[in-house]
Design a binder for these strands. Sequence first.
DNA 1: TTGTAGGCGTTATCAG
DNA 2: CTGATAACGCCTACAA
Lengths: 334, 334
Amino acid sequence: MSNVTIKDVALLAEVSVGTVSRYINGYQLKAGNRKKIEKAIEELDFKINPLARGLRSSKTFTIGVLIPRISDVFCTQVIEGIEEAMASLNYSILICSSNDSVQQQTDKMNGLMDKCVDGIIVMPVSSNEWSWRGSSDNRIPIVLIDRLVRECEWDAVVSDNVNGAYSAVEMLINHGHRKIGIIAGPQNISTAQERLTGYMRALNDYNIVVNDDYIVYAPYTKNGGIEAVNRLVGLTDPPTAIFSTNHPTTVNSLKVLMEKELVIGNQISLCGYDQTELFQMFTPPISVVVQPARDMGISAATTLMKRINGDYEGFPLIKRLKTQLIATSSVKKI
Amino acid sequence: MSNVTIKDVALLAEVSVGTVSRYINGYQLKAGNRKKIEKAIEELDFKINPLARGLRSSKTFTIGVLIPRISDVFCTQVIEGIEEAMASLNYSILICSSNDSVQQQTDKMNGLMDKCVDGIIVMPVSSNEWSWRGSSDNRIPIVLIDRLVRECEWDAVVSDNVNGAYSAVEMLINHGHRKIGIIAGPQNISTAQERLTGYMRALNDYNIVVNDDYIVYAPYTKNGGIEAVNRLVGLTDPPTAIFSTNHPTTVNSLKVLMEKELVIGNQISLCGYDQTELFQMFTPPISVVVQPARDMGISAATTLMKRINGDYEGFPLIKRLKTQLIATSSVKKI
DNA sequence: TTGTAGGCGTTATCAG
DNA sequence: CTGATAACGCCTACAA
């Protein structure tokens, strides 16, 4: 064990522990003493003990990150952004997966609090009100990412889902499509709601009557995508284009359409959500709305740090990052 | 702040703090006292303070996980396995990315040690000897995953790369291929070495002369894949089949071959590494060697826990998990 | 600007 | 089996 303490440093530097502590915490001190302390620290290879420090100051220089699923590409990119931003500030990140379960979300959230993290970034499983005991006592900053939660006054970083979806649907319309199906996702998730709003708004702006049969509320999972597409193409008057509003459903829409040997960009048009290298390698490549996942992570980390440092300016702050539309020949001009 | 301490519990339960502490740590005590303490804990909503506990016992119930890149699909699945295994034991995981840099790997490793984690799982950037000061003093258990490191006596969990590659090449041979190119990866990574060994061994077993032109040592990155494929198909006597030995290079091999409009499974055969749903959706689907990433994570976590709990049986233990070959029509019968 | 000493919440060592 | 008490390493009044 590297059991060097400030006491050892103090001894070697011939000052008191108080002075060493002050040095560590960046207080002013006599140049001579500073030198001696630096030398001693170097010589002894002193490392501050975060446990002892945390015990006194209740700061751990650690944040918690809670996401629905670690193996999800989108989540992964978000985390990468968070890690990048936090590492440069010497903060560590404790990662938890709620496995798409509200129960686990609550449990892991409590677990994170119990670990005395300085703040939490959470991508909620659902956007329903979130009764959570922790919110009342222990007051550490929390930043939502990707999804908002009803009735929760927390900072949040999301992408502009309404306009992201709008741009996709508008593109479909501009390509001549009038019968546009949407895999709308569960409406207890804010992103799904907002994307549906974008869809509605685009249809509205272009005077297209909404056909309820074209709106399928599917869970944001593999099976959700599969069933939704089956439903849509099985209609007596099926849509000519499908807009799938998240990544897993897009993957599986694609899968089903290919299995049915419907030629994409010809017999059926498809626009999806979230970027994957591989989407662009199909023939034709798949049109998608791309979210700035990494930047969302960085932004959430930055906001959280502001709060941790006591700056509560503009609380609660909701940051909306713009999406980008990749339009390809997976959408036919008709 | 949930500032309830064992002192408060002791007061309410009318016992001493020592007794409460013993209760927490599962020692035997008089049934009456146990009851009273349980009631007090419940009533006060007492939570143990991990900082204070850690300060005394130098156990944090936290492990570090250090990987080359968070957004890599393989890494992600590994982490998911680790998280699953650790969460059930009430351990937290601190995650760091070395961003494929040896320097960062050392830095983050030290950072983890400084955070007093109880153990570390690391997927090393390279397999070269790893001079690392931490290994001498602070003796916490470390488990390597996916890649071995030369001269390091550490436990490790890897996949059976030699036989994984062997099975792929053997399949190619059985399909009639004799001119088999390999994108072999940098030889300072054990997985790359071993997969090349599998390739060699298969050729040898089937009496096929090794053609050095068919072996391309490319970095395990996008560009590595691109350049390697270009080299192979540009040969005057190009291979009829290509074996790409990791995921990013496989993705990009695929990309280049498609751009060149070489029909896979016909003009050129391809076998890759690591599973992605999307690989199976191309026409034809892509043959791949699949590693049990999630299980590797679970296994590494289990091994680490054994060591943390003081069980050093069989140290250093190298566990090799079997791979699975998915053979598709991306490989032509000739 | 510096030294001293008390305390953060636990655990561990003693006696009892 | 239990109670009292001294650590664990650091921070922060307070006094000098």
